[in-house]
Nucleic acid binder design. Sequence first.
DNA 1: GGAAGTCAGTTGCATTGGCAACCAAATTAT
DNA 2: ATAATTTGGTTGCCAATGCAACTGACTTCC
Lengths: 157, 157
Amino acid sequence: MTERGTPETGAEFDLEAFLPFILNQTAEVIGKSFQAHYRAAYGMTRTQWRVLAIVGRYGGLTASDICAIAHEEKSRVSRAVAALEERGMLSREISPEDKRAEILSLSAEGAETYRVLGQAALAFDQALRDRLGPEAETQLRDLLQRLRSVTGGAEKG
Amino acid sequence: MTERGTPETGAEFDLEAFLPFILNQTAEVIGKSFQAHYRAAYGMTRTQWRVLAIVGRYGGLTASDICAIAHEEKSRVSRAVAALEERGMLSREISPEDKRAEILSLSAEGAETYRVLGQAALAFDQALRDRLGPEAETQLRDLLQRLRSVTGGAEKG
DNA sequence: GGAAGTCAGTTGCATTGGCAACCAAATTAT
DNA sequence: ATAATTTGGTTGCCAATGCAACTGACTTCC
């Protein structure tokens, strides 16, 4: 790599110290590191994994519920659900109360996948906790929480 | 939203408490919140903004340097550089030492844009610091740093 | 009861992104 | 020297996004 020049003047902006950048960087590194579990092993998208996780955890909810919980966009969720159904991981059923809404639930295979990935995720989280130390990890969660609420917990869907 | 069912058994995985998810969530919220500055105001991509920031800060470096600094992928950087050049924000010049490499530098307009956006970024960062409190902010940076180094500071390019 | 608005979910389209193949210059090995 | 490898950078292709438009179902309000 060529040598870096020196900054010109006074209070200069430094991307590498920019919190949004650092946050994104960290999220990406950590995210990619877990990606292997659902992507390499199951060929799943991150959104698909999230949908699976949510439907696995709380059965019988709708796509909108997922949007709200995962703060995902409806089109993404829609496609993820379609893909998961395609793969026989979950099934939809039109809600008797509201014929627009579809109640989602995992198939046996989906449930099994959820179990495996859920365990992997728990282990992954535990590993992070182990390395940071429990109190640091709590602190981190707290700080991230505060950070998020700062900019308004704005929804997206 | 329909009511959530109850989890089935023992140590169940909960996406909303999953650190990678939380991290990503936070990064996205914060990131989008700053996006307005470069996207709405200048129609720039995040990668373009990053490239501009780096070239603005350290002039006369190459695309590979940017990849290393921003941990971005070379194709992304390549396209961002092309777009910025297209818009007259920066210029390339073949390195005399290595005819493959291109030395990048900002045009007057690019420099001005960098100045404006850099100031906005500094202000943004300061605002976050103000809300978290200075010691919490330092702590956060430290924790994120540790988190990143944990999973190996693996490069991507 | 019907028009107007809202809500669940889907789809089309134009960008974006990742990945691998690729070209040309540089370096290393034989 | 020249073949083989590595490196800087670009490009093609396909999957994934983002956003807005759209369909059909529900609600509201007159």
